[in-house]
Nucleic acid binder design. Structure first.
Lengths: 388, 388
DNA sequence: CTGTTAGCGCCTTCAT
DNA sequence: ATGAAGGCGCTAACAG
């Protein structure tokens, strides 16, 4: 602390008589120089055998190796990074690690990043949980920039505010300028204002998937379809909703000019979780008791919708059909099994991982869109015949 | 946005006197010295205002702040860590990010680690996905040691092999010796050979939970109970199985001395995933067609069991009762809702996070056990009356 | 309060 | 093939 300072107040001081929280013995770690001394060579030589990027005599190398083993030497990543101006950290930003949607992507990205890692080599995939908060997203980007990360993968929907987009773009531009590879996964491509090279993007066909899903419902005969959407400001939310509306727009719903207003009335926004689905379903039933189908913005929400319907004594799909989005693993296991739109999350994640590692050339135009597939299962069926 | 930042939509504009941004990835980053020059002070002063741990005159501070903003300066974490011998990385090792069990824990740990992060401060939670592989676990520990991580949280079951345990213990000992805080979460406490201080541990009462679960089944009248276990060598697997057997041991099963062999025959080992549950259920039915209940090692496995039973035309719980473990979010939503054992994963994760941040004193004895709670739901019921 | 001076541990030219 | 020396960017004693 500083001279005359009064800073001692903040330091967590262990109570008298009690041992400190943790053994604070800062035993000095063994360094390159220690190894060099032990092996009877210069530290430069040790560095060379460690990195294997420069010829070293066989005998010397052996001696160094032994010294390293005997001393349990572990390189100091910080020092190495500082000297070599490279880092072995790769950041993976996700909205919610607890959500399988992101878990599956992150898992695939991570596998790709660790792939082919030699003992001693290999990048460290850093999964950062933003909780969907724009501020946290920026904070993590700063943290990663501070660590001079080798790469960054941004997954999941983007918050669509001009301010936030600008802030993210600025961060990413700087990161890219300093050599960090940027990859977007499941998020719309970014356009750089100054004509700079936009990051490689693995996009999901949310719009198309949503459209086909609603078309499926329409073709079954449904006309009064509720939609449980996500938070308004997110790109994924918007795209899925647009797909849904696009399908409705070309349908023969007998509502004429009021069609749009009707669709609007049957749309409820929520968060991407189960509780929000539950509440939204009840709200939709209130707005339109004649409802025959509900489309949810994702599978988790759909589960909440199902719960609400059951609590209302309505059967699925007898009284109301329900559909989700993403095809998370549990979706095939609930009963009735959920009709949904499958996104090849693992494949997309693997692709993003390869891109950020530079093991895959960026797609032409910078954007690769992975397709979606309609999975028709037990939760959707033709509406009950009504004798209006 | 930065204080004093320009308009939201403006691209980062190179400052006069500085070379323009080039897409050439050799852009030299702004350093402390640059900021110091710009502000007309020494770099030490800049460092002081940045870290706020030393008094600096108000005017000077302001000038420095402005220079930082104008130059878009971001500290180099590597250099700082090297000089200060501290890192802001905290590793969180999980078996599988795609599994909500780990996702929930990781999410809570991470939230705790980021808690109270000032803009510019804050530790970076690094979620590392081991995939359950012992080698990957060791690799990550090495990587984290290399980065001189501030802390490490190990979550999930441990592989119970003397060799691996020794290897992990060695790594952890060294990490702890160099000042890294170690916390175990959902994994049995570690005993240090040399009397060193074992890491703080947040343990789950797997044994007790499993016992109560099987007792519940027994009290319903079940006697022929199949058990779908996890991989043999994992601690969690063993504990849950032990709890199950303990309950059986005191039951009035009319099988006499053969009881143990019978229990053995009705136990199938698998991996902790859905497919394994599916296969195991079929195998159990083959071994004992008179089965009236199946206990799964976790909820995901239970889902597979349910699917298999349904495919066999058996109703749940009419023909066979099914129970799981963990009480993951989806468990209440499948139908019938799953009887299971709830582990307060978020609470446990938060605790682990506090411990690793030094915000919570280690529990007496180093081990805090979080309780489990039996959640009786629709998937279990008395067995159908049989006219043997 | 502020500047000066040493390193932190490693990599990387240069010599040899 | 190896060693010596300088520096990566920052913090932390010491003076003033």
């Amino acid at each position: 602390m500083w001279p005359g300072g009064r800073g001692a107040v903040t330091a967590p001081v262990p109570l008298a008589g009690h041992p400190p929280l943790q053994e604070d013995r800062t035993e000095m770690a063994v360094t390159l120089a220690d190894v060099a001394a032990r092996a009877g060579v210069s530290s430069a030589t040790v560095s060379r055998v460690l990195n294997g990027n420069y010829p070293v005599a066989g005998g010397t190398r052996e001696r160094v190796r032994r010294a390293v083993a005997e001393l349990d030497y572990v390189v100091n990543g910080q020092a190495r990074a500082l000297a070599a101006a490279t880092s072995d950290l790769v950041g993976v930003l996700v909205n919610d690690v607890a959500d399988p949607f992101f878990g599956l992507i992150a898992s695939a990205v991570q596998a790709e990043i660790s792939a082919g890692a030699e003992p001693g080599g290999g990048k460290l995939a850093v999964v950062c949980n933003t909780g969907g908060s724009p501020e946290a997203e920026l904070t993590y980007l700063t943290l990663l920039e501070r660590q001079r990360a080798a790469g960054v993968v941004l997954t999941g929907s983007a918050v669509e505010s001009a301010e936030h987009t600008a802030a993210v773009t600025a961060r990413l531009t700087r990161l890219a300028a300093s050599g960090t590879r940027i990859v977007l996964c499941g998020r719309p491509p970014l356009t750089l204002p100054d004509g700079g090279i936009a990051p490689a993007t693995v996009a999901f066909d949310n719009r198309g998937g949503a459209r086909r899903l609603t078309e499926h419902l329409l073709s079954l005969g449904h006309r009064r379809i509720g939609y449980v959407s996500g938070p308004v400001e997110r790109s994924t939310t918007r795209h899925r909703l647009e797909g849904h509306r696009a399908a409705l727009a070309v349908s023969d719903r007998p509502l004429g000019p009021d069609a749009e207003a009707y669709a609007e009335r049957l749309t409820v926004h929520g968060t991407y979780d189960r509780a929000s689905g539950y509440d939204a379903a009840l709200e939709l039933l209130r707005r339109e008791p004649e409802l025959t189908a509900i489309v949810a913005a994702n599978d988790t929400v759909a589960l909440g919708v199902c719960a609400a319907l059951r609590d209302r004594g309505l059967s699925i799909p007898g009284d109301v059909s329900v559909a989700g989005f993403d095809d998370l693993p549990f979706s095939a296991d609930v009963s009735p099994a959920l009709t949904t739109v499958r996104i090849p999350l693992q494949e997309a994640g693997a692709r993003a991982g390869k891109l950020v590692m530079g093991r895959l050339a960026p797609p032409p135009g910078g954007v690769a869109t992975v397709g979606t597939e309609l999975m028709v299962r037990g939760s959707t069926a033709p509406p009950a015949v009504r004798t209006a």
